[in-house]
């Protein structure tokens, strides 16, 4: 039995996994307003896969304190979350579960692919790869990529800012000054 090559296809997503009913009141201004509200209270899902998950935890804890940017409510259930941070290596055995979790999230929903593993297989993208999915974007649509192995918490925060920009079309926070030395 061959196990090489990309093992999981996009068809894993069931029909309607992206589908959202059109809003009842569809006025641009109202939508814009809602988008700002959404982007300022993103609820990520507690979904740690590997090493990167620890940095994700660190981002939410003391010092980095993601709560400052409105995203501290980590929910254990996908049904209460609207951002999925794929933090770590997705393996062949885990792939169906990742897809199922994504499908269980109510829309509108976003995905942050955190770490090299989730982006491309990272350090595990080797010739004889038989178990690691090379990029979570082969399974589910990804909105923001945060590279690093693991990305520093600052990196993840920057990823969140990017996501907020994606939702509202505007960056809300000042750009960090460059540190010398």
């Amino acid at each position: 039995m061959a196990a090489q090559g990309s093992v999981v296809q996009k068809e894993m997503l069931t029909a309607g996994a992206h589908y959202m009913d059109p809003p009842i009141v569809n006025i641009q201004l109202a939508q814009d307003l809602l988008d700002v509200c959404r982007s300022m209270s993103l609820w990520p899902m507690t979904f740690g896969l590997a090493c990167c998950a620890i940095e994700m935890m660190a981002t939410g804890m003391a010092r980095f304190d993601m709560a400052r940017f409105g995203a501290e409510v980590f929910r254990p259930s996908p049904r209460q979350a609207d951002v999925m941070i794929v933090a770590g290596t997705v393996t062949k055995k885990m792939a169906p579960a990742v897809v199922r979790l994504y499908e269980q999230m109510p829309g509108p929903k976003w995905v942050i692919s955190m770490g090299n593993c989730a982006i491309s297989g990272g350090p595990f993208k080797i010739k004889d790869n038989y178990n690691v999915i090379e990029g979570v974007d082969t399974l589910i649509p990804v909105d923001v990529y945060v590279p690093g192995c693991p990305p520093r918490p600052e990196g993840l925060l920057e990823g969140f800012f990017q996501l907020q920009r994606l939702i509202t079309g505007k960056r809300w926070w000042p750009v960090a000054a460059e540190v010398k030395g």
Partner: peptide, 14 residues
Amino acid sequence: LGYLHRMHEKMGET
């Protein structure tokens, strides 16, 4: 187990 099997032993051989 096995949801995070990352082939370390295989990588050791390559």
